[in-house]
């Protein structure tokens, strides 16, 4: 029978779909996946960007793990994460929770929170850098002066610099998290709240037993995306510290700056690649862990 000649409708559809997907697939393989895998092999070499790539085994990793600065940097990176996540989560949820309850000025307020997310990180970092200056430039110290409180060193202090850099990073991401939280809060059916109200639940019980559990997927998403964001922090540190070094005394230097300096100032590409692999591993483990924790009895 000649009717069966040619392809089925399903096969034709699949061919068309693949045709459209070819360009992005080729792009991703060349621009994203190949360099990623290349980084793994590069981390086992002593490449200095122009010379030969000589295989040196785990030497880069051994040097890295014996370098005290690397551990300081790794510690800083986790500090950004461990302070950044809870603070930004708490702030964005609280703002979204109350923003959802107001009608007047809702759109304007939401826009105000979202603007930092749209603004260039470099510009924001420099503005904040000025905020942190001593009097008469820095508004924070001006305000402290007005209140009769002692001046702060902020970016010049080894203990205050990291939180000072973290602040604008949290602020910049807040708008996005608020929008996501708002969408999550709005997708909870009204009847849940009405039933709870009739059953006599107070605000606390409603928050802990209905709103937050219902936002589990939203929270997972925000925690994962912002974890990745904080672990990869760069712009703020690069633009708010002297020469973009992540100082003073490496007090604010995160892993990505460390990688950047190794690669493009010291030209130790193999070493930089090894650090990249470490960062990649950390990101993957954290993401998988979070997915697993959040999925449990979800």
């Amino acid at each position: 029978m000649s009717n069966n000649k040619g392809l089925t409708v399903g096969q034709k559809r699949a061919i068309w779909a693949w045709l459209f997907l070819v360009i992005p697939i080729v792009y991703f393989i060349i621009v994203r996946f190949y360099p990623t895998f290349d980084a793994f092999s590069m981390s086992f070499t002593d490449w200095n960007i122009i010379g030969e790539r000589n295989y040196i085994g785990f030497d880069n990793y051994v040097t890295l793990f014996n370098d005290p600065v690397f551990w300081v940097v790794l510690g800083n990176t986790f500090e950004y994460l461990l302070f950044g996540i809870p603070i930004s989560l708490l702030l964005s949820f609280t703002i979204a929770y109350y923003l959802d309850q107001i009608k007047f000025g809702h759109g304007l307020l939401r826009a105000c929170y979202f603007v930092p997310f749209l603004t260039t990180a470099v510009a924001m970092a420099w503005v904040w850098r000025w905020f942190y200056q001593p009097v008469p430039i820095g508004i924070f110290n001006l305000a402290l002066g007005e209140l009769g409180i002692l001046q702060m060193d902020f970016l010049r202090s080894t203990t205050q610099a990291l939180p000072a850099v973290l602040m604008p990073a949290i602020w910049a991401g807040l708008g996005f998290q608020i929008i996501i939280f708002l969408a999550g809060i709005r997708s909870i059916p009204d009847s849940y709240y009405e039933a709870a109200k009739i059953d006599g639940a107070g605000d606390r019980q409603i928050l802990w037993e209905i709103t937050l559990p219902q936002l589990r997927a939203t929270i997972t998403f925000i925690v994962i995306t912002s974890s990745i964001g904080f672990l990869r922090i760069f712009d703020q540190v690069y633009n708010m510290t002297q020469e973009g070094e992540g100082g003073p005394l490496n007090a604010t230097r995160p892993l990505v700056i460390h990688i950047y300096k190794s690669a493009f100032e010291d030209f130790e590409m193999g070493m930089a690649a090894a650090q990249t692999v470490v960062l990649f591993t950390i990101l993957m483990v954290i993401t998988l862990l979070q997915l697993k924790v959040m999925k449990k009895d979800g």
Binding site: P189, S191, Y192, E194, I198, G200, E209, Q214, R216
Partner: peptide
Amino acid sequence: PKDRNIAMVFQNYALYPHM
């Protein structure tokens, strides 16, 4: 509502899916 001593059954049941 909570002080009215009433109970209500909703069309979509309004059961909490995570409980």
